[in-house]
Design a protein around this nucleic acid. Structure first.
Length: 452
DNA sequence: TGGGGTTAT
DNA sequence: ATAACCC
């Protein structure tokens, strides 16, 4: 932590720009949101698609589309038939295999991590970055006279005017410059465009990133935060208030942000429980103290396939084998070893909301050891385990109708639990630097004196 | 509604 | 193991 020395050079212009020592309050957060991500990846894979209305299809849904398609009336999650009706020239590509989207998504996160290591992923196409420290560093080496020449990058929410004497404005403005550099890097290095929102917390950064849409950015100054949250027409639009909570709020007669701000906290706590009540009521005021939590490598890998109908054990087994084969490839690439496997199903039901059931178990250690070696058949014992999990959920002697099968690997461990600074750390081949097929490839790890 | 992900209980 | 949330 590089904080300004408190009490030194009191009142000097430079020190007026940094936060008081020990104050952890005001942060600078950026939310980066890629434009129609899957469609962008597809247009990069096949540049002939550029300029044409493009939709990405999964099963019978257009899950996302480019802006050309949007202008012709295609919406996200639109039925393929409706989309084709609205827009007969619509070009569709299948997007059920997420491999390239996932790989590109991690490239974006890694690029952002180069700016600051504190990056939190939200889905495949959004990232939060805590810029507080980076902004502080830039301000500390900025000559006092240069403050007057600072300019914002991109839009300012509400067109609010910037006060260069206000330390919070200055910090957010520097945040906007870093956001612009991030978007520039994404475009130059990966060919991707996106939006960014800069604000003092994750909620506000996310809300403000969507104000100017495609490929633009917006900064929110504190004086406009109430305008931003009141621009939401319904509490359901508040990130963190989902379908269920919105329904329960509606039952209480709460539909607007103002309703949620002014409802008695006692009533809210009684209805939703203290933790949720307090959290969402703070959200309604634009307050969100949740930290940007570095996502790091994924906690789980899963592959799923929705089906019209799966009603026999043989069908299920064949689907499960497909899903498992893909997962084994992914897990091998990752290098870490899953210690738990889970099977998830969705049963056909006429009215009920898509409820899933799952069974999981530990993966026997002799199988874990064979993972990624390529030589031994790990499919057969794993499929056996999965079919046992299957039969523990589905009585195969009775008729059944499943509409989804999914296999998930979780509880990932880096075998290499080896501590830095021990001799083993430098003698153990790192799986992450070794190809799946490569037998004895070592990469020398960097030696840092701080590790000892 | 797809094909993913996360955290809390 | 499920339920909620996010995309």
């Amino acid at each position: 932590m590089e904080r300004a020395e408190a009490g030194v050079s009191v009142g000097s212009p430079v020190h007026d720009r940094v936060m008081p020592a020990g104050s952890s309050s005001s942060r600078v957060i950026v939310h980066v949101d890629l434009d129609c991500f899957y469609a962008q990846v597809e247009m990069i894979s096949n540049p002939e698609l550029k300029g044409k209305p493009l939709g990405v299809q999964q099963k019978y849904l257009v899950v996302t589309c480019n802006y050309e398609a949007r202008e012709l009336g295609v919406k996200k999650l639109m039925n393929v038939r409706d989309a084709k009706e609205k827009c007969p020239q619509l070009v569709l590509v299948n997007g059920e295999d997420l491999t390239r989207y996932r790989e590109t998504s991690y490239k974006v996160t890694e690029l952002l991590e180069e700016f600051s290591p504190v990056v939190e992923r939200l889905g495949f196409d959004e990232n939060f970055v805590d810029l507080t420290e980076m902004v502080e560093k830039r301000l500390q080496r900025l000559p006092s006279d240069d403050v007057a020449a600072l300019t914002v990058s991109g839009h300012v929410y509400n067109n609010q005017s910037i006060n260069l004497h206000d330390v919070l404005h200055i910090r957010l403005l520097v945040g906007s410059q870093i956001a612009a550099e991030m978007r520039e890097a994404m475009y130059n290095q990966l060919g991707l465009t996106g939006c960014a929102g800069v604000a003092s917390n994750k909620l506000l950064a996310k809300l403000v990133s969507g104000i100017f849409k495609p490929n633009q950015q917006t900064v929110l100054l504190p004086e406009s935060s109430q305008d931003l949250i009141h621009s939401l027409k319904h509490v359901k639009e508040m990130p963190g208030i989902g379908y269920k909570t919105a329904k329960r709020l509606e039952a209480l007669g709460i539909s607007s942000v103002h309703d949620l701000q002014t409802v008695s906290s006692k009533i809210l706590e009684k209805e939703l429980g203290i933790p949720i009540a307090q959290r969402i009521q703070k959200l309604s005021f634009g307050e969100d103290n949740s930290p940007v939590t570095p996502s790091g490598p994924p906690q789980s890998f899963s592959e799923e396939d929705s089906l019209k109908k799966c009603s026999s054990e043989v069908e299920a087994k064949s689907k499960i084998q497909e899903l498992l084969a893909s997962l084994l490839n992914r897990v091998c690439q990752d290098g870490r070893k899953p210690h738990t496997i889970r099977l998830i199903i969705r049963r056909y039901s006429s009215e009920k909301h898509c409820s899933r059931e799952s069974r999981q178990c530990s993966i026997p250690s002799h199988i874990i050891q064979k993972l990624g070696t390529g030589n031994y058949d790990v499919m057969t014992p794993m499929v056996d385990i999965l079919m046992k999990l299957f039969r523990s959920m589905v009585n195969v002697k009775m008729p059944f109708h499943l509409t989804l099968l999914s296999v998930c690997f979780c509880n990932l461990k880096s075998l290499n639990t080896t501590k830095k600074g021990t001799i083993d750390y430098y003698l153990t081949p790192s799986l992450s630097t070794t190809s799946c097929s490569g037998k004895h490839s070592f990469k020398m790890k960097d030696i840092h004196m701080e590790d000892f």
